[in-house]
């Protein structure tokens, strides 16, 4: 049962899997994002309260979800690397950080542009916005910490620890709209039994979410290949891998 798990410790295996998966992820991401864009921008009706400004949700919500997903992936990969001493966990965490940081920045910028017409301000020190900003700082901190040590192994361990500690921010971001009075609207899709959107608005959103996840997978695989090559430069299998 654990064979597949321990195979993930093998750099040539991880490199090969990442190389095979990346083009598939990218292809399916293009299709789902393409459908989501056309259906969301052209065919979805305007919101009865927010008008056409609601269409910002098609990039804002997926990027916000991905900022949390990427961070959780990074923290779990770091924990696996620390607990089982699987070096590839550090490689996954290092590859995931810049992608997650860019999605967090995208969520903050699009949220700010949505906030201006809806709340009358680009920024408010609201629990959801503030905790998402802290997430961006956590990403930046992890990337800086990893490169701050002369010994890369120490940098990896320090970044993994920060990642695990920072994981506490993920449920805070998610539940901030429930726990505190927030300007930010509540969950739209999380209520699986009864989503707060009709199908014509919901399907493009789900398609964009899937597209962003697949795109994340594609870029993660590409970055992971680079990470593995950088970490295994001296290994014999590299000669066959890079031809």
């Amino acid at each position: 049962m654990w064979t597949w798990f321990y195979r993930l410790a093998s750099p040539p295996y991880v490199y090969g899997v990442a190389a095979r998966l990346a083009p598939w992820f990218l292809g399916f991401a293009a299709v789902t994002i393409g459908y989501g864009l056309v259906a969301g921008l052209v065919f979805a009706p305007p919101d009865y309260q927010q008008g056409d400004a609601f269409r910002i949700i098609y990039v804002h919500a997926p990027s916000a979800w991905m900022s949390l997903f990427s961070y959780t992936t990074m923290a779990i990969a770091g924990a696996i690397a620390l607990i089982w001493r699987i070096k590839m966990g550090h490689a996954v965490a290092a590859a995931s950080a810049p992608i997650g940081a860019s999605f967090t920045l995208l969520a903050l910028v699009t949220g700010s542009l949505w906030g201006r017409p809806m709340w009358g301000t680009y920024w408010a020190w609201d629990p959801r916005l503030t905790s998402e900003l802290i997430l961006l700082f956590l990403y930046a901190g992890m990337m800086s910490l990893r490169s701050a040590f002369e010994d890369p192994a120490r940098g990896d361990r320090a970044a993994a620890l920060l990642g695990i500690v920072g994981l506490v921010n993920v449920p805070i971001i998610h539940y901030s709209v429930v726990w505190w009075n927030s300007l930010h609207q509540g969950a739209t899709v999380a209520k699986l039994g009864k989503p707060a959107m009709p199908g014509s608005m919901l399907w493009p959103l789900l398609s964009m979410l899937l597209g962003f996840m697949l795109f994340y997978g594609a870029v993660l695989c590409m970055r992971l290949q680079g990470e593995v090559l950088n970490r295994e430069r001296q290994a014999k299998w590299i000669r066959e891998a890079i031809g």
Partner: peptide, 27 residues
């Protein structure tokens, strides 16, 4: 918003490709 999203996705793809290519050269 959509323009910035396109920019972020394009940057991610470009930087990942460049990172991988640079690692191949170094290796």
């Amino acid at each position: 918003c959509f323009a910035f999203a396109g920019l972020v996705l394009a940057w991610n793809w470009w930087s990942a490709r460049r990172y991988h290519a640079a690692a191949r050269v170094r290796a």
